[in-house]
Computed example of a mutant assay.
Amino acid sequence: MRRGIEYCPVTAGVEAVGDRWTLLVLRELLLGSCRFNDIHRGLPGISRTLLSARLRRMESRGLLTRTLDDDDRPAYRLTESGAQLEPLVWQLGDWARRWCFGDPEPEQLDIGRLLWRLRQYVRPASLPGRRVVVEFAPRGEPGERAWLVLARGDVSACRQHPGYDVDLWVTGDLGEMHRVVAATTTLRAATRAGLIRLDGDPGMVAAFPDWFAWRTPSGPGVW
């Protein structure tokens, strides 16, 4: 690795991970994405060419490895060095949430990106023993619907109806949904305020919050 002009560990750390995309690629890997297309989908605004370059650079710096899975498809995994950056990634988000993170801009409101991120927070072991379909319908956006298909062995986020009966409906303000997932508020607070509503089987409505590993203002896992 090229050394900075200053003999300082902070300088060396910035040289290793200090650009925007490296930290965001780390976030996607920490959230469980290991295939190129999944990593790319979680990074709006990056080109496939630039992502390829960042992955190669991170591999050369010992932050990740590129292997082939059982189907001979490339898979990216964090090394021990890369995995030890996890506290830095989440603490940076926590700091931003406190000091420089406001409400979402209109162009940031996207139900598809929202569900892709929420999909990454699913706790498979907490899901019911059968497939569950959750429909998300933002208020005031009649054409904007999306679905999560939840099963212990597979979780999918869909912009088209998945073809299964819906078990649970989540309706409400799209901006508030983004705030819940981004952890500037909690699902409990949003539902109590009437900004988000859950409908369906009462048992599933009660269990729904426990299906996700929320990052919230009160700490991980508190909803």
Rank of each mutant, 00 (worst) to 15 (best):
R139V: 13
L174A: 12
T191L: 04
G175E: 04
D38C: 06
S33N: 12
D38G: 05
A151I: 04
A125N: 07
T11C: 07
T22Q: 05
F136W: 15
G82C: 01
A190F: 01
L29H: 01
E28W: 00
Y121Q: 15
E141Q: 13
Y7E: 13
P44V: 04
M58W: 15
G200I: 09
L51N: 04
P74T: 02
E176I: 05
E105R: 15
V149S: 12
R117K: 05
S156G: 11
R20H: 12
R197A: 12
R54T: 14
W223H: 13
M177Y: 02
V134A: 09
R179L: 00
A16N: 10
E59S: 08
G143Q: 14
T216P: 03
R179K: 06
W169I: 13
S156K: 11
L50P: 08
S60K: 11
A213F: 05
L115S: 01
G203F: 05
E28T: 09
A157H: 06
D167R: 11
R139F: 14
F212H: 00
P217I: 03
D71R: 03
G45W: 11
A146M: 07
V17K: 06
R20T: 13
C100K: 12
L63W: 13
F212W: 02
V222K: 01
W116A: 07
L55T: 09
T79Y: 10
W214M: 00
C34P: 01
L118R: 01
R77A: 14
M204N: 08
G102W: 15
C158Y: 14
R3Y: 10
V181S: 00
E105S: 13
S218F: 01
D199S: 10
P209E: 02
Q91R: 15
T171N: 15
G42W: 03
T185R: 00
V122C: 02
R27P: 01
W90T: 04
T11D: 08
R73Y: 06
G172K: 02
R41C: 04
A157G: 09
L64T: 01
I46L: 10
P104D: 04
E141A: 14
D201F: 04
R139W: 15
P220L: 06
R61Y: 11
T186Q: 03
V170P: 06
L78F: 00
E15Q: 12
E15A: 15
S126R: 13
I39G: 01
A137K: 10
F136R: 10
P202N: 09
W147A: 08
V132A: 09
A137D: 03
T185E: 00
A190H: 01
R130K: 11
R35E: 04
G82L: 02
F212K: 06
F212A: 01
I39S: 00
L115C: 01
P220S: 09
W116N: 05
D201P: 04
T49K: 10
A125V: 03
V17W: 07
G143L: 15
W169Y: 10
M58K: 07
